[in-house]
Simulated assay, not measured.
Amino acid sequence: MNAPLHLVCPHCHAVNRLPAERLGQAPNCGQCHRPLFDGQPVELDAAAFPRHLARNDIPLLVDFWAPWCGPCRMMAPHFAEAARLLEPRVRLAKVDTEAAPQLGAQYGIRSIPTLALFAGGKEVARQTGAMGAQGIVRWVDSHL
């Protein structure tokens, strides 16, 4: 039997322990009882980001974006579609660099949209510019 995975709830941010074999069985959070995966990117602020980065045992794909950015808004539905295609293998998240400028600065985000892929709490790949859903999935798969 595999070691249990730690998954951070996208709703209440509680850390859940889940047997790896249950990952694809639509698990719910033990605290708030909402789905751990709902096919939508989770919006992360400066307070929630470190927990999702450090405590998720699955890779984390982050879209650093801003509301005023046209290419960011254009990519948003494609990023949401990528969430439906990549979950539960990968957690997708969005960080609004206007609302959380310290995260943009901490990760050296110089242009948006920027996708950053984290595994084991470390950045493993970065891509700048808008992409379609299939392109996002191919890019993630090429780095995991």
Rank of each mutant, 00 (worst) to 15 (best):
M1S: 15
N2P: 15
A3K: 10
A3I: 12
P4Q: 04
L5H: 10
L5T: 11
H6S: 15
H6P: 02
L7H: 09
L7D: 03
L7C: 06
C9G: 12
P10S: 13
P10D: 10
H11Q: 15
C12A: 02
N16Q: 09
L18T: 00
A20F: 06
E21V: 13
R22V: 02
L23D: 01
A26M: 07
N28Q: 12
N28W: 02
C29K: 11
C29V: 03
H33D: 11
R34Y: 09
P35G: 05
P35M: 13
L36G: 05
D38Q: 11
P41R: 02
P41A: 00
V42G: 01
E43N: 10
E43S: 14
D45V: 02
A47K: 07
A48N: 02
P50E: 06
P50Y: 10
P50M: 11
R51I: 06
R51E: 04
H52F: 09
A54H: 15
R55E: 15
N56E: 07
N56R: 11
D57T: 04
I58T: 07
I58V: 14
P59H: 09
V62F: 00
V62N: 01
D63G: 06
D63M: 00
W65M: 06
W65T: 07
A66T: 09
C69S: 13
C69W: 14
P71G: 13
P71L: 09
P71Y: 01
C72V: 12
C72I: 12
R73I: 11
R73C: 09
M74C: 07
M74L: 14
M75V: 07
A76Y: 08
A76H: 03
P77M: 10
F79C: 07
F79H: 14
F79P: 04
A82Y: 00
L85R: 15
L85S: 11
L85M: 15
R89E: 15
V90W: 00
K94L: 04
K94M: 01
K94D: 00
K94G: 02
V95Y: 01
V95F: 03
T97A: 13
A99Q: 08
A99W: 08
Q102P: 14
L103M: 04
A105R: 06
Y107R: 11
G108D: 03
I109M: 08
I112D: 05
I112R: 12
I112M: 13
I112Y: 02
T114H: 06
T114K: 14
F118Y: 07
F118K: 00
A119C: 13
A119S: 14
G121T: 04
G121Y: 02
K122Y: 08
K122N: 13
V124G: 07
V124K: 12
A125V: 08
R126I: 02
Q127D: 10
T128E: 15
T128K: 13
G129F: 12
A130E: 12
M131Q: 15
G132D: 03
G132I: 04
A133L: 06
A133H: 04
Q134D: 13
Q134N: 13
I136P: 07
I136M: 07
V137T: 11
V137Q: 05
R138Q: 14
R138I: 12
R138P: 01
W139L: 06
V140R: 07
D141N: 15
H143S: 03
